[in-house]
């Protein structure tokens, strides 16, 4: 069978589908001061998994606000800088009008994912941290 660290080089998704891969990628991103990219990506996935129902309305609103505040509101933040202005205002509108939809962070997540696929992921595969691990 293919060792996990070789599968990590196949695609970003195969890396993010493995706990050890995520940990190593996160250590690398932390060195580069951009671990927020990964945390945001997972926060978006986690948010989407919360099914809307009467018992978690408050939690979903609180969480949407927390994600917005931590990653998007500060225009100098690493995540915020990679998200298109139109996407940011869409999310801001959803939060302000309390229109909390499971898919409200999907576009932002796609933009961050594209950035990781083009930039941080290929750099990670050439990094000392990955090569030493293999």
């Amino acid at each position: 069978p293919t060792p996990p660290y070789l599968r990590w080089a196949e695609s970003l998704h195969s890396l993010l589908d493995d706990q050890d891969g995520i940990n190593l990628f996160r250590t690398f991103l932390k060195q580069e001061d951009c671990a927020d990219l990964l945390d945001f990506w997972f926060a978006c996935s986690g948010f989407r998994k919360l099914e809307p129902n009467n018992s978690n309305e408050e939690k979903r609103l609180k969480l949407a606000k927390a994600i917005y505040k931590k990653y998007i509101l500060d225009n100098n933040g690493i995540v915020s800088r990679q998200i298109k202005p139109a996407t940011k205002s869409f999310i801001k509108d959803c939060v302000m009008k309390q229109q909390i939809d499971p898919a409200m962070f999907d576009q932002a997540q796609t933009e961050i994912q594209a950035m990781m696929e083009e930039n941080t992921y290929p750099v990670f595969l050439k990094s000392d941290i990955y090569l030493e691990y293999t």
Binding site: Q19, F42, S45, K49, K62, A66, K70
Partner: peptide, 20 residues
């Protein structure tokens, strides 16, 4: 009451793959 950070952490962890 959950703090915002706890809520975020819980959300991030919920999306991570389980250890195989």
């Amino acid at each position: 009451i959950d703090s915002e950070d706890d809520l975020l952490q819980e959300c991030i962890s919920s999306a991570m793959p389980k250890k195989k």
